[in-house]
Design a protein around this nucleic acid. Sequence first.
DNA 1: ATGGCCCGTAGAACGGGA
Length: 259
Amino acid sequence: MIVATWNLNSIKMRLAQLLDWLAQHQPDIVCLQEIKTTDENFPAQALAQAGYRSAVAGQKTYNGVAILTRQASTPEPTALQINIPGYEDPQRRLLAATVGDLRVVNTYFPNGQAVGSDKYTYKLSWIEALSNWLHSQLAAHPKLLLAGDFNIAPEPEDVHDPQAWEGRILYSDPERAAFKALLSLGLQDSFRLFEQPERSYTWWDYRNLAFRKKMGLRIDHILLSAALAKQCSACTIDIAPRKNEGPSDHAPVMVRLMP
DNA sequence: ATGGCCCGTAGAACGGGA
């Protein structure tokens, strides 16, 4: 089984690329972030024709997440959860679903804008609320997968120039500590379970030829509970879509899970 | 390097992204 995550930066702009990518890789479950549209305007019909169900937590203009499940290989998702229970938030940043024995938590972490800003405070409080909720989710669901755009580069090797990024948004110590706190719940960074190429990133600024210069950050992740980590045989970043005409600034990440 | 690029909402620039 393949589970993937991809921040599309508008599903409207990227629908054709998404359909191409689905046809090429036939992932079983896909977590999408920054769909930037409402439930009503989500292209569920085009995706259904491509063989995928859509579960959507949409929002006009900003944010918005969705989980696609492949009709041919997965059961109907159940126990849908929009946003973190008990955490009041008009922004749509979390969608969880149970697919078979798998609990899928799709997340779009706040960006934080700048260290010390109101949005930074929101980011840290949002992650803390997520952590608290995940603690009970993990107790209820041994096979839990936390995927999405975390907007955190956890380690120096996840940043093209760690010295330049020191203390800055996406790489500040409190953000990295919050990421470690998620791991300490019993989650593992699937990407680091395997040997990986140097300078592996999932996001590159649109400006200044950042992709070509390999000036990126690894901020999109798939974390696995212990039971799932045992089943995981690969985790890869697919940089091919970043070479498309009019790409998302994020690349998809995918894991293979053995039965 | 102050910003460069891209999206949605606008109906021109601007907020937001990272």
